Every structure is written in structure tokens, then in C-alpha cells.
Amino acid sequence: MQQTRRLLEIMARLRDPDTGCPWDRQQDFASLVPYTLEEAYEVADAIERGDFTDLRNELGDLLLQVAFHSRMAEEQGLFDFEAVAAAIADKLERRHPHVFAGVDFASDTERLRYWETSKLEEQSEQTGQPPGSILEGVATALPALMEAQKLQKRAARHGFDWDSPAEVLGKVREELDELEQAVASGDTAHVREEMGDLLFVLVNLARHLDVDAETALREGNRKFRRRFRFIEACVERAGKQLADCTLAELDAFWDEAKRAGH
């Protein structure tokens, strides 16, 4: 806890209106959002690379964002870092009665349903309104793949789901057919709509295959980076520029990259 207090003291000094850092003093909740999101993604990147030294550093950067937001809230008399820690500690105990209150759940499904019900009740207490849609609480600011996956999981826990991956594959083919029809129609808005439907059902297929769609696409992006760099190296060795090569030549280099395990 000594280092936590040190961090909070440093944050207070950085925000001091007289002697603090000009940049830190100028920030507000909205201006920090891009940095908070960036730090969260850098944590994910360190984990995916298996670089645990970097993970330690990136977690520190993310913790700084929590301390920064908490300090600004404290300055406005809203809450402080201790209140943030207390809120998450209370929430963890409340949502894990099987650990802290001796409750037995018959299955993981029952446990997850309790978790979702608890979230709705918490939202109701905060707003003073009756519990709303089970989809409430899924942030619209999430990356679209993550949002789709969370929406689908919520609905599935309440019975709105296919029974097998084979059924989802059938829906994928149906949505692909509808996209082809939209493309043939030349209606740009319809194409965009059908593309969204296809992407949404592909996320559902990933979920049924126990694949995290966001992670799968990130891995696909990294694979493309490796193979395209290989293509660039091949083109450079040939004394050419990418623009000088035909698509057939570039495809041949791509196939060579695949054979080389890139």
C-alpha cells in the first residue's frame, strides 16, 4: 500500500494548481478517454505477446489513468480513489455469493444468470428506475466486435440463441446470400446493412466455437502484417517497387510467405 499512497501523492502534486504540471492540470475526464482506451489496449497487446515485463509497465500506465480520474473527481467533491476501490470490492463480494456468502449454484449457467440479474438490480438502484433491458450495461463505446459478442452472450443466457455451430453456419450462408443480393442491387445503404448483419452473425459463430472474435481478428491482423512484410522484402530483393508488380506476382510472394510459415 505504500506505493499506492506514493502514486496518489504524485498525482496530487501533478494536479496542484500552482506548482503542478501544466499538461496534467489542463486535463479533464473527456480529454483522458483516448489515453485510457490506449492503455487498456496496450495491456492486451503485452499479454498477447507474452511480455510480462511490459505487462507490468502497461498495468502501471493503466493504473495511472484510474488515479488520474479519481484525483479529478476528488477535486470536484465527487469521489476519491478509496471510494473507487471500495465500490469494486463491494461489487465483487456482492456478485460472488458462492465465495463470500455460502451460496451454492447448481451450474455455471445459474451463476452467470445471477451475475446478470445483480447487474440489473445495481443499475436500478443507481437510476431509481425498475430494471430495464438485459442488454443495458453493454457499453456502446466498445469496439464493435466486443460489443456484438457481449450483446449475444447476454441474450444467450436468457435463452435467445442457436443450439449448435451448424445452425449458425446456416445463418452465415443466409446473410452472405443477402449481402450478394444487396451488392447486385447497387444500394450502398443496403450493402452496409447486410455487411453489418454478416459481421454480427460471424461473431456469433465465433462465440459458438469458443473463439473470442476480437482476439481472432487481432491475430489475423498480425498474420497479415507478417506476410505483407515478407512480400515487401521479396519485392525489394527483386529490385522493384510494389506498384511495379502485378497482382499475380504479389500473390505468388504471398503463397511463398504461407509456405515459409509467416
Score class of each variant (00 low, 15 high):
residue 178 E to Q: 03
residue 98 H to Y: 10
residue 113 R to M: 13
residue 38 E to N: 06
residue 67 A to G: 15
residue 88 I to V: 13
residue 238 A to E: 07
residue 156 A to N: 02
residue 217 L to K: 02
residue 118 S to F: 14
residue 22 P to M: 06
residue 255 D to K: 12
residue 229 R to I: 13
residue 246 T to R: 02
residue 29 F to P: 05
residue 64 L to G: 13
residue 91 K to R: 14
residue 220 G to L: 09
residue 261 G to V: 09
residue 142 L to G: 03
residue 183 V to E: 12
residue 152 Q to W: 07
residue 178 E to R: 00
residue 55 L to D: 03
residue 173 R to K: 14
residue 211 V to L: 14
residue 215 T to D: 12
residue 183 V to L: 15
residue 51 D to E: 11
residue 238 A to F: 03
residue 76 Q to L: 10
residue 242 L to S: 01
residue 145 L to A: 09
residue 100 F to K: 04
residue 90 D to K: 05
residue 248 A to V: 13
residue 188 T to N: 11
residue 15 R to D: 07
residue 62 L to I: 11
residue 97 P to F: 05
residue 114 Y to D: 08
residue 2 Q to D: 14
residue 91 K to C: 06
residue 180 E to I: 03
residue 220 G to H: 05
residue 118 S to M: 12
residue 203 V to E: 01
residue 31 S to F: 04
residue 217 L to H: 02
residue 260 A to F: 08
residue 205 L to D: 05
residue 141 A to R: 13
residue 58 E to I: 01
residue 20 G to V: 02
residue 46 A to P: 09
residue 126 Q to C: 02
residue 63 L to Y: 06
residue 10 I to A: 10
residue 225 R to C: 11
residue 98 H to W: 06
residue 192 R to K: 10
residue 172 V to Q: 06
residue 248 A to E: 15
residue 217 L to N: 07
residue 243 A to F: 09
residue 148 A to Y: 03
residue 170 G to V: 03
residue 229 R to T: 08
residue 70 S to G: 06
residue 241 Q to K: 13
residue 222 R to T: 14
residue 213 A to Y: 01
residue 218 R to L: 12
residue 77 G to S: 05
residue 135 L to I: 04
residue 262 H to N: 10
residue 63 L to N: 09
residue 64 L to Q: 09
residue 245 C to I: 03
residue 43 V to M: 05
residue 110 E to N: 10
residue 257 A to V: 03
residue 26 Q to K: 13
residue 73 A to V: 00
residue 187 D to I: 07
residue 247 L to W: 11
residue 23 W to N: 09
residue 54 D to N: 14
